Each structure stands twice: as C-alpha cells, then as structure tokens.
Amino acid sequence: MRVSLRTPGIFIFGLVMAPCGLVLDLTATVAPNWRTLHNLPNTASDVFIQQGIWDICRGTSTSTRDQCNLQDTSYFGNQIIEVAQGLMVASLIVTLIGLAVAIPGVRCWRDRPNWVVAGMGGLLIFLSGVMTIIPIAWYTHILQNVTTVSPTVDVRVGYCIILGYIGGIFEILGGFVMFIGICRCCGGKNRGETRVDEVQASRSRQQPLPRRVEVPSLTRGRTNPSSVAYSNDSLDEDVSFPRKTDVESKFTVAV
C-alpha cells in the first residue's frame, strides 16, 4: 500500500517538543539557580545567594555582576545534589540519542516512515523526560532542607526548577506521542495516513469541471438558389439599364 508523503502529525509534534525540552533542560542543568536565599544573617539586605547543582553565586539587587565559584561542602555533599548531577546529564545524553534514532525513522524522503525506529526514539525521549522530572521534583520537595539554614533566611524556588519542569514535560509528551506510533493498526488510518489514489480522487472531485464555451462558426452557409422565389414583375421594375428589346425597336424605327 502506497500512502501519501505527508509526515505524520505525531512525529512533527514529537520532533518539535523534544528539542524545546532539551534546550530548557540544558539551561536548568548549567544555570546556578535551583534555589535562592534571601535575608541572610550578618549581610546587607540586598545580598542574596543562588545555589545550583554545579555552582553557587552571590549577587546583589543593585548590581548585575555576581560572584560565583563559591565553596559550600555541606551543600554539594548532599545526596540530592549528586543524584541531580547524574540524572540531568544523563537526561541530556539520552535526549540526543533519542533524536538521533527518531529522525531516520521519520518519513521525509520515503513513501512511509519506519514506525518501529521512530517509536524507539520516542521511548528514549520519554525516558529522558522522566530522568529530568525525578531530580527536579525531589529537590523541590526538600527545598527547605537541602542544607541547614537559619529560620530567618527566605528560601525561594529558582528559575531552573521551573525550566526543568517545563522541559521534562515537553520531553515526556513528545516521546510518548511518538512511541504510540508503534501500534500499527487499521492500515494507517489511525495515524492520519491516506492512500495516494484517494488523495488524488478527492482533489479531482473538488476541482470544478471546465466550462464549455460554444464558439460561433465563422463560415457562412450557402443559400440554395432554388429556394428563393423571384417574380418577373419584380425584375422588370428593378431594371435600371436599357434592355435588349427596347434598343432593337428604336434601331428599326430609325432605319
């Protein structure tokens, strides 16, 4: 069965959501803002600390320059930090592998896609999203207890947590939608495929029939001489030149 060359919508959806999730997860991994500490004791009121899984920075609300590479052994020695580092990096790698597997399976230059290959790529993307959500959710759950802080310190969620959630959900949705394409049933109708002959037939039905224009003939029909009635009287009345009989009678009289 030859089907139309239109790329299935579930693959388009997955190949759009997965790279978006990859960019968001990459930002959440490298940026040092998983949580922010305000109202620190023995410091100015405008000073705050941003803590990530790879770096810690100190900044102020009156300056755009932050002081990074701060050391905090108690923070980096926490179990959640080690787990988050491993899972976030693994999620990025698995997402790249999933895209590399899914792209050859998506139909862009062939009559039909390779549903098994594309579905396996979607499964890898789905797993990468799960590996992103696990450390993000765990860190959010123990946000106040990652390290011991003073009760007066204001602990706030950083933007990396929000980006990580959004990126993980994008990858889960995109990978799941691509993976369900493995369920090959109903001859491709459930996947939005249409036979080429059906597409051509529907297009031919939609096109209006050409309008028939009758062009008048430029050749004149010949009239049958016998069909026109002439009378001798009418011929006599219309004669504007001398007839032979009149000329002969005048010539005789003259002689």
Rank of each mutant, 00 (worst) to 15 (best):
C160D: 05
V83L: 13
A118K: 01
G175W: 06
E198G: 08
G192W: 03
P41N: 06
H141I: 07
L5E: 13
T43A: 10
I125G: 05
I49T: 08
V16C: 15
W138Q: 13
G175T: 02
S128N: 10
F170C: 05
R243D: 10
M120S: 14
S227Q: 14
L127F: 12
Q71S: 12
G59R: 05
L26T: 00
P151R: 00
A44Q: 14
A254Y: 08
I161L: 00
L87T: 00
T95A: 09
V89P: 03
C185W: 12
Q50R: 12
L173A: 11
V101H: 01
T62R: 10
N224L: 00
R35D: 06
Q200W: 05
N232P: 11
I125N: 01
N33H: 03
C185Y: 11
D111T: 14
E237D: 04
C68P: 08
G181D: 08
S128M: 09
K250P: 07
G188V: 00
I142L: 02
V101G: 10
V3L: 15
E82I: 02
C186H: 09
R184P: 07
G98C: 04
G105E: 09
F48A: 00
D238E: 15
A100R: 02
I97L: 04
L163S: 05
R195L: 15
P216Q: 02
V116R: 01
V30P: 03
V89I: 10
P113C: 03
V47Q: 04
L124D: 09
A100G: 12
S61D: 13
I53E: 01
V196R: 04
